[in-house]
Design a protein around this nucleic acid. Structure first.
Length: 492
RNA sequence: GCACCGGUGGCGAAGUGGCUAACGCGCAGGUCUGCAAAACCUGUAUUCGCGGGUUCGAAACCCGCCCGGUGCUCCA
């Protein structure tokens, strides 16, 4: 099966295949490490993660490059304010970003590329652009891209800029540019700012040239896919195309994927609206990393997602259903053999699941057959009609589901532990939800002891004591289930 | 202003010309249970923002209107 993915450049669903017949080469715009990542950032990174995991599921190897922007205006401003070198300023945020990726189970790209380690490549690219007549130096020493040299400008975002009059809305004198829309490739050093001494002068790279240079360094002049948030389509990605193709005269990326912005409570997320959340904020409120992951990937990437706390609760409960069922399969004992109806159901679920993902990564549709299968299997178990061979077939389907969604296996303790540790270091203890602390207060051993006491009480038909223990545990977020094969408990 | 996306049960959300409108969450009732939980069953949209039209047939296509959101500038 092959993956059909919407291509912003062509405006339609195109098959995504490796042009070299082997490995799919993709570039995704990464973070600017001047602060902690927020859930909007992570929706994009998560959807790219869904893409690469789906490709793997379809048997397509991936070479994925992501940049880390560790020099830009905000970084310089903040580092200057703090009185420290930019590398010292960005290092903790880069570290935090990588931790957050791990918390959300976002697979690391094959190659991470820091902007400050590729200055030479960027300078080289600007020199080639200058030779080609597509770049020029302004009086202050900054370099600009000459838009008029690239007639195809606007082909990605479908903008026709030919009618734009220079100077109509921008004061040209201020910019020392030939044309108001020409964008910066290289910014001349200002006193006291971080800068590099290079053959094209002293200064620092513009944001757009960074991605062009690093993408071509690791993936070649032409590669398969370029991804990013929808806001980057214009001007960032448009500029990347202009810079790259002006030098190579080859298509830069064949396929472009753009993830839509999310809203929070129906509005665009922003600090001034008071609806701005980092991953760490949510973990400290007591939400599980897996629930955040599921909530952010369950709405397909081309749709606006309205993020709410109700949505997180829903995701939490859906995950409970998945995990409870998974446990039931693993811990239950089943007679040998196969039930043809369940074998068929498992086969169908897997086919429908893969078909939905292959259709422009329709994660919402992909969930349905999995839940259908769970109901069919639960019914069969209740009637003792699920056999060992069926369990294995269904576990295999769940494994494929988790190969992309990755929420059934419980890895939630570590991100929460890390977030609590961070809160302490960063002086954010006040933001830790009391319920979360209460939940952490019971060790597994303490729970086991109470559960054992309750089981004994039940045997002696001392139900009031048994219920008392159950309520006490429930208050700490621990749920008890009595089943035929013993007592299980889990943390909510 | 120009461009674009969306409005499907209480909520989230698939489906884009033809089987009883997926799936998840929630809620109500039932089965099971000492009681719960889990699981299962039934019910939660006779209908897909509103009004017209096209068609044998529309949630899906066309026209108009109403509502919500986004981009055009740093932004995932």
């Amino acid at each position: 099966m092959s993956l059909r993915l919407f291509n912003t450049l062509s405006g339609q669903l195109d098959e995504l295949t490796p042009s070299d017949g082997k490995t799919l080469r993709m570039y995704a715009c990464g973070p600017t490490v001047y602060d902690y990542g927020h859930i909007g950032n992570f929706r994009t990174f998560l959807q790219v993660d869904v893409l690469r995991r789906t490709l793997h599921l379809l048997g397509i190897p991936v070479r994925h490059v992501m940049n880390i922007t560790d020099v830009d205006d905000k970084i310089i401003r903040n580092a200057t304010a703090a009185g420290i070198p930019i590398a010292q300023y960005t290092a903790p945020y880069e570290q935090a970003f990588l931790e957050d990726l791990d918390s959300l189970r976002i697979e690391r790209p094959e190659q991470l590329a820091r902007a400050t380690e590729h200055i030479d490549r960027m300078v080289g690219l600007i020199q080639r652009l200058a030779t080609a007549g597509a770049a020029y130096q302004a009086e202050d020493g900054s370099w600009y891209f000459r838009l008029s040299s690239f007639p195809e400008y606007g082909k990605l975002s479908k903008k026709d800029l030919s009618g734009m009059e220079d100077g109509a809305r921008v004061d040209l004198d201020e910019y020392e540019k030939d044309s108001a829309r020409d964008f910066a490739l290289w910014k001349a050093a200002k006193p006291g700012e971080t800068s590099w001494d290079t053959p094209i002068g002293r200064g620092r790279p513009g944001w757009h040239i960074e991605c062009s240079a690093m993408a071509m360094e690791y993936l070649g002049d032409s590669f398969d896919l370029h991804a990013g948030g929808e806001d980057l389509m214009f001007p960032h990605h448009e500029n990347e195309i202009a810079q790259s193709e002006s030098v190579t005269h080859k298509p830069f990326a064949r396929h472009w994927m753009h993830v839509r912005f999310l809203l929070v409570d129906g509005r665009k997320m922003s600090k001034s609206e008071g609806n701005f959340y980092t991953l760490r904020d949510l973990l400290l409120k007591g939400y599980k990393a897996s629930a955040i992951r599921l909530a952010l990937i369950s709405v397909p990437y081309r749709h606006q997602l309205n993020f709410t706390f109700d949505g997180l609760t829903e995701a939490t409960n859906a995950i409970d259903r998945l995990r409870t069922f998974h446990q039931r399969l693993i811990t239950g004992s089943f007679a040998p053999g196969e039930n043809p109806a369940l074998q068929e159901a498992a086969k169908k679920a897997q086919a429908d699941y893969l078909a939905a993902l292959s259709n422009d990564l329709n994660t919402a549709e992909a969930r349905a057959p999995i839940f259908d299968l769970i109901r069919a299997a639960n019914t069969a178990i209740d009637q003792s009609q699920l056999l060992a061979g069926d369990r294995d077939a269904i576990l295999a389907v769940l494994a494929r589901f988790d190969a992309v969604f990755d929420v059934i296996e419980d890895h939630d303790a570590e991100p929460t532990r890390r977030a609590l540790e961070w809160a302490e270091q960063a002086g954010r203890q006040a933001d830790v939800a009391p319920e979360l602390l209460a939940r952490q207060s019971f060790t597994d051993e303490a729970v086991d002891a109470l559960v054992a006491e309750r089981t004994l009480a039940k045997k002696q038909r001392n139900f009031s004591r048994a219920d008392q223990i159950r309520n006490e545990l429930a208050e700490k977020g621990i749920v008890i289930e009595d089943s035929k094969d013993g007592v299980h408990w889990k943390r909510k």
